[in-house]
Structures are given as C-alpha cells and as structure tokens.
Simulated assay, not measured.
Amino acid sequence: MDRRVFMRASVLAAGTAAFSGSLVKGALAAPAQNATSPYGALLAADANGIQLPSGFTSQVVARTGQVVSGTSYSWHQAPDGGACFADGTGWIYTSNSEVSAGGASMIKFDASGNVTAASRILSGTSTNCAGGKTPWNTWLSCEEISLGRVWETYPFGGTAVARPAMGRFKHEAAAADPVRQVIYLTEDETNGRFYRFVPTTWGNLSAGTLQVLVAGTATSGSFTWTTVPDPDGSPTTTRTQVSGSKSFNGGEGCWYANDTVWFTTKGDNRVWQLNLLTNTYELAYDDGLVTGTATLTGVDNITGSSYGDLYVAEDGGNMEINMITPDDKISVFLRITGQSSSEITGPAFNPAGNRLYFSSQRGTSGSSSGGITYCVTGPFRT
C-alpha cells in the first residue's frame, strides 16, 4: 500500500462521516518487489566495513566492553533494539542488551551528533531484545524469555519499572499508537501472537487490558481484537488462551505510522501490514513472493523514516538493511561486510532524520562481547 496515498486517505477519513473504502482499495498493491534503490548502488566497503550509497558515511559510536568516547561508561554486550528521543537541541539513543542480566543503556548526543553522556537505564533483567518508544518519552524494553516482561525505562532520568499488565510472554517489540491510544506487541515464538495493550489511562501503563488479534489463516483479510483472560500467562500461555487468535511465525520488529502498523516475522521472512482504519491486514513483503532473488532475508528489526520509507534489518541474511518505499519497492540500503556471524539490530533515526543508528550485535567476533553500534549520516529522504 502506498503510504503517502494512505496518509491522504487517513486525513480524509478523519473529516468525513461517510468514508468510501474505494480510495483505500485503490491504494492496495502486491507485496514489495525488487527495484533499484532511490539512493543508487552500494559502493565498496568503507573503513568500518560498511557498503553505503554515494553521499553517505558511517562511524562507530560504541563498542561492547569499551568506554563510550567522551564518557566514563562502558558499552553493554549484544546491543539490540533501539530508539531515538529528542533532547533539547540534541537527542538520546537507547539500546537493549540481549544477554542474561542485560538491561538497557543510553547515549546522549549534542546538536552536532557528538556524544555528551552515556549511562545505564535498566539493570537486572534478562535477554532484553527489542522494544519501542512511547509518546511520553519512555523506552519500553522487552524481555525475550518465557514469561518475560515489558520494562518501562526513563532515558531522561528515573527508575525503570516492570509493566506486568502488558502481559508475560516472550516479548519482542512494541509500537505506540497515539490515535487509538494502545501499544502493539510482538511475540517471538514459532506460534506467536500479535497483541495490543489498552491502558486504562493513556500515558500510564500500570493498568489496562491485553488483547490479541483474531483473524483467519490467510495472508490477508479482516481482523478483530479479543481480550486475553489471563495476561500473566501462567499456567496457560497468553498465545493459547483465545480461540481463533492468529498465529505468526516468530514476531520481531514493530512500527506504527499514519493509522498503519507494520511488524515482521522471521520464521517466514515476512513484513505484515495492518490497516487500522478498515481493520484489515495484508503482506507488505514476503520473500517467497518476490520475482527473482529476494534481497531481504532474515527479516528482523524495523523502523520508518518521516518520508514513509521502511528500513528492515537482517538477522543473518547478507547483513543488510533493506528499504521498502511507499510504492512497495524494496532495495538494499546498506551492507555490513566481514560479520556473517552477527545480526543487525536497533535501527532508529535521530529527530532530524539525517542520521540512522543501528548495531551489529556480535560484530566481527561473532560473540556477544563483540557488539558495535554505528551511525550512518547522509541525504536521507525526509
């Protein structure tokens, strides 16, 4: 679906009582197909081992076990999901640590992108994989373990707190929807589910209702939401409590924009798209439906730009970040060389949209002690 067309449809729908579905239907397209990148071909790998289009440059921001430049803080192991937060004239990048007792950290930047501070924002939790930011500037760090919890952390200062009302399961990513005032959640199980949490009060995640998506077995159709009777997930797992809830093969990244939520499933290399105005779903990408050789495999973390481009990171594959444009074209944006035993994690744009942060979770060593966090700067479409 063309995201720019859909944005216009969303505005029209908000101001028209009798909204015709024909406009949305007309914007539908097949799952994304291979195309030439709007940024051009990749150049040879730079000094950091990253292949980028012309006009883009990379830098290393932090390395596991080493002090972040300009601070006294040592960067954590296995950097994973991340997000950026506006901070006055600068910004903050948060990052999870996907190891036992991993937690999460943050790095603060000034207006020129120079590091000014770094610190721990969550400790004592386990296998913090992905997560998501909230409109009230907190970072939801998700535990990817059985009966895992969502932890609300405070990059600007404050003590992290568990949010058990959001369900206990093998959490992966979260995405906030300020229009419907809910948080979407993915589950990293081969028969995982897609959830939404409806807070009793928007902005307060201490209480609310956990719901699960109910739909047929097809790759497109309509959906509804049903309340999960026992969000605690014990003795009956949350994913098996509601008859008719739709199974997804390894839920990973999640991104919300313009009345649409996208999420990825690694078990079948798909990007799913939910139209929240019509309560319908479809495939935005499926490697099995690509004409020719699929460029995107190992589908994992996902983020979006202000232009409407989606950026999808690979866990394995060719160690690439691929981009899906609003007209459903997919191409390679960057490739990390010499790190085939790693995965790309935590893609997130700074507020201006001209810097993309991400990590190689295991770097050149293939170990959680070899993580590297990068920044790519250049003429991104905004």
Score class of each variant (00 low, 15 high):
residue 86 A to S: 12
residue 55 G to C: 05
residue 21 G to W: 15
residue 297 T to S: 11
residue 98 E to W: 11
residue 200 T to F: 00
residue 39 Y to S: 09
residue 214 V to F: 01
residue 167 G to L: 00
residue 349 F to W: 06
residue 379 P to V: 12
residue 21 G to A: 15
residue 3 R to F: 06
residue 76 H to G: 12
residue 213 L to P: 00
residue 382 T to D: 15
residue 69 S to C: 08
residue 60 V to I: 10
residue 61 V to S: 06
residue 334 L to T: 01
residue 14 A to D: 15
residue 185 L to Q: 07
residue 377 T to M: 13
residue 176 A to D: 14
residue 51 Q to I: 09
residue 57 T to D: 09
residue 219 T to D: 09
residue 260 T to S: 07
residue 88 G to M: 14
residue 141 S to V: 13
residue 101 A to M: 11
residue 349 F to V: 04
residue 78 A to M: 15
residue 20 S to I: 13
residue 89 T to P: 01
residue 165 A to F: 02
residue 280 T to N: 08
residue 1 M to D: 12
residue 321 I to E: 07
residue 97 S to C: 11
residue 322 N to E: 14
residue 184 Y to M: 04
residue 375 C to P: 00
residue 21 G to E: 15
residue 75 W to V: 04
residue 144 E to A: 07
residue 21 G to S: 15
residue 305 S to M: 12
residue 246 K to D: 08
residue 139 W to V: 05
residue 238 T to R: 05
residue 81 G to T: 10
residue 357 Y to T: 04
residue 286 D to G: 00
residue 176 A to F: 11
residue 127 T to S: 06
residue 71 T to N: 10
residue 288 G to H: 09
residue 141 S to G: 06
residue 172 E to K: 04
residue 224 T to Y: 02
residue 20 S to A: 14
residue 39 Y to G: 04
residue 267 G to H: 01
residue 57 T to I: 08
residue 378 G to K: 10
residue 120 R to S: 11
residue 268 D to T: 07
residue 328 D to Q: 11
residue 342 S to C: 08
